[in-house]
Computed example of a mutant assay.
Amino acid sequence: MSDPFADLHETLFADKDVLSEDYQPESILERDDEIEEYRHALSDVLFGRSPENIMLYGKAGLGKTAVTKYMMDALVDNAATREEADELHVHERNCNGKTLFTIVRGLVNDLLPPEASPFPKRGLGTADAFEELYAQLDRRGGTHLIVLDEIDHLEDADTLLYELPRARSNGHIETAHVGLIGISNNYTFREQLSPKVKDTLMETEISFSPYNAVELQTILENRAEKAFVDGGYDKSAINKAAAFAARDVGNARQAIDLLRVGGEVAEKRRAECVTDADIEEARTKVKRGRLENRIRDQTEHAQYILQAVAILESDDKTPARSKQIQGMYEAVATRCGADPLTTLKSIQDHLSELHMLGFLQRFERNEGRGGGQYHEHALDLDPEVVIEIRKQIESERGE
Rank of each mutant, 00 (worst) to 15 (best):
M202D: 12
E272S: 10
E30R: 14
E131H: 14
L357S: 06
N366F: 04
Y304N: 05
E84K: 14
S346P: 05
K317A: 13
A241L: 10
I151T: 01
A6C: 14
S194W: 05
Y134M: 14
Y304Q: 00
L19N: 03
S20F: 01
K323S: 12
R190C: 00
A243M: 08
L100H: 08
I151E: 02
L133N: 07
R31K: 07
K268V: 09
G289D: 02
F359Q: 02
L75T: 08
E30M: 13
A331H: 08
I151G: 04
N109T: 09
L291D: 04
A331R: 13
K240P: 06
V249T: 15
R390E: 10
E131I: 13
R369I: 05
R365F: 04
P165R: 07
D380R: 06
S194Y: 03
E115Y: 06
V214E: 11
E21V: 07
E292G: 00
E225T: 15
F13C: 07
E364F: 04
E84H: 10
I181D: 04
E131K: 13
K287I: 00
L312Y: 01
S194A: 10
R39Q: 11
L193C: 04
P25A: 01
V385E: 11
C273W: 06
R365M: 10
A277V: 01
A74K: 13
R390M: 15
E267L: 08
R260H: 10
S322L: 08
L306S: 02
G371K: 01
T99V: 14
A176M: 06
E92P: 08
D156W: 00
Q136D: 03
S43V: 13
R290P: 00
E10L: 12
A271W: 03
T11P: 09
A60Y: 04
A60C: 05
L381M: 06
D234W: 08
Q361M: 11
A237V: 07
L107Y: 07
K226P: 08
M72P: 02
S395G: 11
G358R: 03
K317C: 11
H91C: 12
Q24V: 09
L354P: 03
S50K: 14
H153G: 01
L46A: 09
A80F: 04
R140K: 13
I173R: 04
D297S: 09
P114L: 08
D257S: 14
Q303R: 15
R122Y: 03
Y187I: 12
F228R: 05
D278N: 05
K59L: 15
E264M: 14
T275A: 06
T175Q: 07
I146K: 07
D110N: 08
V386R: 00
N96H: 14
Q324G: 15
E396R: 02
T126G: 06
L160W: 05
R296H: 00
S236Y: 12
G106W: 05
S20N: 07
I256V: 15
Y162N: 06
V249K: 12
Q192D: 01
L124N: 00
A243V: 10
N170I: 05
L107M: 08
R49T: 04
A242H: 07
A135W: 09
V332A: 06
Q326T: 12
R290W: 01
E281L: 09
S207N: 10
M1R: 15
D339A: 12
A310F: 02
L220H: 03
I347Q: 04
